[in-house]
C-alpha cells in the first residue's frame, strides 16, 4: 500500500492503517524522544502518548504540515521538550549535549538485536563532529535555521548547505 493511501486512511481513523504507520515509524519517533529525554522508560511513555495524540488528531494532518513522518517528528519533539522543561525532569539535570545521539548510536552498536537496523558504524562513517552537531539540532531537537546558526556560530545560509552535505554523507553510507 502506498504511503499516501495509508495516511489518508489514517486520517479517516482507520485502525489498521494506524497500526501499519506505527510499525513503520514507532522506533524512529521513540529514538528522537529518547535522544531528548535520555531515559528509556520516560521515552517509551512519551512515545506512546505521541501516537495516541497523533491518532486523536489524525484529521488535522495535511500536506501543509510536511511529510507524515515530519508531522510525527514535530509532535514527538514538542512532547519530549515539554517533558524536559517540566519540573520533575529538571531535577535530573541532564544537559542536551549535541554529541548524545552519537553516544546512543555507538552504545547500541555492539548489542544491537534488531536485524534490519543498518550498521551504526557504517551509518556514521567519516561523519564529522560538525555534521553530528547540525543533524542533532535540526532533526533531533527541532532548532530552526536561525537558532542552529546562532548555536553553532555560523552564517544562517551555511546551515542549509552544511546540513545537506552531512545528510548526503549518511545517504552515501547507507548506499554502501
Amino acid at each position: 500500500m502506498e504511503l499516501e493511501e495509508l495516511v489518508e486512511k489514517f486520517r479517516m481513523k482507520d485502525a489498521k492503517a494506524f497500526e501499519k504507520l506505527y510499525s513503520m515509524y514507532a522506533d524512529n519517533i521513540c529514538g528522537v524522544i529518547f535522544n531528548i529525554v535520555k531515559n528509556t522508560d520516560i521515552a517509551q511513555e512519551i512515545c506512546q502518548d505521541v501516537f495516541v495524540k497523533a491518532w486523536n488528531n489524525s484529521e488535522s494532518y495535511n500536506i501543509s504540515k510536511g511529510r507524515f513522518f515530519t508531522w510525527m517528528l514535530n509532535i514527538a519533539r514538542n512532547a519530549a521538550i515539554d517533558e524536559v522543561r517540566s519540573k520533575s525532569h529538571k531535577n535530573s539535570k541532564q544537559n542536551l549535549s549535541s554529541d548524545f545521539f552519537v553516544n546512543i548510536l555507538e552504545d547500541k552498536n555492539d548489542l544491537n538485536a534488531q536485524v534490519d537496523t543498518i550498521g551504526i558504524k557504517s551509518l556514521l562513517t567519516n561523519l564529522k563532529e560538525k555534521c553530528v552537531q547540525i543533524i542533532d539540532l535540526l532533526y533531533f531537537k527541532g532548532y530552526t535555521q536561525k537558532e542552529a546558526a546562532e548555536e553553532l556560530e555560523i552564517p544562517i545560509g551555511t546551515v542549509k548547505t552544511r546540513n545537506r552535505s552531512c545528510i548526503a554523507q549518511i545517504r552515501g553510507n547507507i548506499a554502501i
Binding site: Y22, N28, T40, Q48, F51, V52, L123, Y139, R171, I174
Partner: peptide, 25 residues
C-alpha cells in the same frame, strides 16, 4: 533524505524498540 533520517532516528531508539508497545498505545 527521509530514508537517511529514518535510518538515523531508528538507530537512536531505545534498545528494546517501540514495536512491542503498540498494545499499550
Amino acid at each position: 533524505i527521509e530514508a537517511a533520517v529514518l535510518a538515523l532516528t531508528k538507530a537512536a531508539a531505545p534498545k528494546e524498540g517501540a514495536q512491542i508497545h503498540l498494545a499499550k498505545v
